[in-house]
Design a protein around this nucleic acid. Structure first.
Lengths: 416, 416
DNA sequence: ACACTTTTTCGAAGGTGTGAAATAAGTATC
DNA sequence: GATACTTATTTCACACCTTCGAAAAAGTGT
């Protein structure tokens, strides 16, 4: 009962939010279209849009000619109203990208990390220097930055203060938010990288227009982002969706998480390569890094029965894992992403679908479609950048008395 | 964008709803307490409660003495404002119970089904006759019945019309709602039995006051009800939560659903008994029905190493299954229910907790507590009866122009 | 009897969306 | 080129809503 949802002004805010969101996600729209989509009366739409235009969030974008009537004016969110930053924190590098509101990239900064088990301070310093560099490269005044979204590996706990847990790289309750807060006044939005990417896929990728989906990430690790009613499913402390460490072969292969039989131990890149090596009687798998090893395996499938068998098994495990998601979450869509997932999916998607069908219940399986990611494997920073945008939309474009910045509102009004 | 949430009257309805819900779920409360809990101003609370009292939904319930000030009046929902019916549709019987709003049972009707694979018509006729009998036995005028909740086995699809799918008993897209609609004008609320029970457990059982929980049902079959933000997680077509048919032993024991290695094949009553029999080299398990066989197994665990091993394995499988739920849904609470679950849990809960800890990720495991069901195995009808209550609360006590009945409102206003 | 405290009600004020009417801005037709 | 028609957009009266502060109500303690 902590939510504040009572006054007539909150009503206005949600209506602003629905109008703004529709406008942002469904491209240029005319007022009558907004009215129809949102159920708001024409008068209200006119009223709300006038306010949004006045504030500079929305601009006119041409007209659409009519069949004998006043032509309807098209409206859209002004891409230059503000800018957002997305940060991809990986285990080997930090990547900072700056976008305008249309998600056109304006700057990109890449920083290597010294080791694959980076210390938090190393990450924090690279985020902060990357941030200033991206801002200066893009030539954008800092006051116009709406927020910084950060997609991190590991479990991101959204408490009174955001903390990150990633036992595999030795991070225990890392207070990432407060560390960053010391170095910037910009609003911060920290989330798990898979969840960030999932949101991007819903807005700009394979999930457009869907409400219930699971975006699955198969790379070195295996994760998932669950979307319900268009929103990320978080659970009690936001660590929901740890699909990679669900048991799929009771008592099976040991997993780096300490348990055994985890899905990740079978369909994560390392798991696949390891099983391939064992099937080759211990001979090393050709190719240098994991990526080329997987590629080699996929290429070999027509010539080598061993490779074919390994891939078939992998398809089976992956299918069963997807079936578990289908049975538990009943999504309308599953998006297969992550670099390993994309490599496998490019060749084997039909087989994966069939394998999922073998293990899932018939009804929910009939209602789900399994598709490939459209944004590719490298869109975590992009996804992270959508986090501040989402915040903007949910607030209906009002400068929330949120995390920081009273400067933003001032900057804005002096700007127009 | 289909939801209607725009006008200033919707605002009133949600405020009525929050006040009414708080009052219903948190027992007798004074107006200042409501104000504090809901964030509404004292004026609004007075205004809203006056309306609810006027309509007969809420009544005064004594006073609480003060420390030198006007004593605060206590308010509560009138248990006799209306009545609700809950129906438990099992594979062998139909059970109809009638409650007042305080969930005190006023009537109970039990009807056997002719076979364990009942035809839909057999179920429908027993529901309808059971309904009239329960109403007459309780001596309640039909106009005072707020609705009938029905908890059914199988997958319940909430479309424009509710349909039920249960392949194991040969039900394919059974149009239960329209069949019942022919025989009664009362508002109907049809849902999966496990979900219905889950809601009851949240309101009146082990889940009180929690927001994110999974209620797990282990009986002959295995199911789960997932609660997020206090609401049942449904997914795209409401068939979410089919935990029993998630794969936990890839390529393992065949399951009646057609797949193999499903959790249900290992920890469902039949699966346990079957594994026990195999371990006894095919000798039949003592005891008549499944229930007494499981009881015999549990009793034998101190004298028989075979029984002990089977139970240990069962604990392991169940723990891994729970761990999957923990990793995927990140609940704050897991409630173990269902008759098999209760029998096992009564003896082995600590071991089950440990087994879950072995397979779950550390952080979400630390944050979850695993408890036994408090409502017992036979509370599906009770749970189903909460469905119309929930509807009442969500509507804020306004007679929705919902599924049926304009008679209800008339009856109500003539009644006071 | 009086002062004090707390609850509850009351009325004015400030906001909101709606629906109908008015206005704007085109196209089709004669 | 003027007129009729059509559709988009704005304007405005209206009915509602919550809040806020003041006043009334209803007790306790001295």
């Amino acid at each position: 009962m902590e939510r504040k949802w009572t006054t007539v002004r909150d009503l206005r805010r949600t209506n602003r939010s629905t109008v703004l969101s529709r406008l942002y996600l469904a491209g240029p729209l005319s007022r009558p279209e907004i009215s129809r989509d949102t159920g708001l009366s024409a008068g209200t739409v006119s009223n709300v849009t006038a306010e949004l235009i006045e504030e500079g969030l929305v601009v006119e974008a041409g007209q659409v000619d009519s069949h004998g009537g006043r032509p309807r004016a098209l409206l859209r969110v002004d891409p230059d109203y503000g800018y957002v930053v997305g940060v991809d924190v990986g285990e080997t590098r930090v990547r900072v990208e700056l976008f305008d509101l249309a998600m056109t990239r304006r700057a990109l900064v890449d920083r290597q990390l010294p080791s694959a088990r980076p210390r938090p301070e190393a990450v924090v310093s690279r985020i902060l220097t990357g941030l200033t560099e991206a801002i200066s490269r893009a030539g954008v005044p800092e006051e116009r930055i709406l927020g910084v979204g950060i997609g991190v590996f590991g479990l991101v706990e959204q408490g009174p203060e955001v903390t990150v847990h990633a036992p595999t790289v030795g991070w225990q309750e890392v207070r990432l938010e407060s560390s960053l807060r010391a170095g910037t006044r910009l609003p911060l939005f920290i989330d798990n990288g898979a969840k960030a990417l999932g949101q991007a896929e819903m807005w700009y990728g394979a999930g457009r227009g869907r409400q219930h989906a699971v975006i699955v990430l198969v790379g070195s690790g295996v994760g998932a982002a669950v979307i319900t009613h268009g929103q990320s499913y978080r659970g009690f402390t936001s660590s929901a969706g740890e699909w990679g460490h669900t048991t799929i072969v009771y008592g099976g292969r040991p997993c780096r998480c300490g348990s055994s039989g985890c899905l990740e131990a079978y369909v994560g890149a390392e798991g696949i390569i390891d099983r391939y090596r064992q099937a080759r009687a211990g001979r090393p798998v050709p190719g240098g890094d994991e990526e080329s090893q997987i590629a080699a395996l996929v290429r070999a499938r027509h010539s080598s029965t061993v490779a074919a068998r390994i891939l078939e098994e992998t398809t089976g495990f992956l299918g069963a894992g997807l079936a578990n998601l289908i049975n538990l979450f009943n999504p309308e869509l599953i998006v297969l992403g992550g670099w390993t997932g994309l490599v496998l999916g490019a060749e084997l998607l039909p087989e994966i679908r069939v394998a999922a069908g073998r293990h899932a219940l018939e009804l929910p399986y009939r209602q789900v479609s399994i598709e490939l990611s459209q944004l590719g494997a490298d869109a975590v920073a992009f996804g992270a950048a959508t986090l501040p945008v989402q915040d903007l939309l949910l607030r209906g474009g009002e400068t929330g008395a949120a995390r920081t910045a009273g400067s933003v509102r001032a900057a804005r009004s002096s700007h127009r």
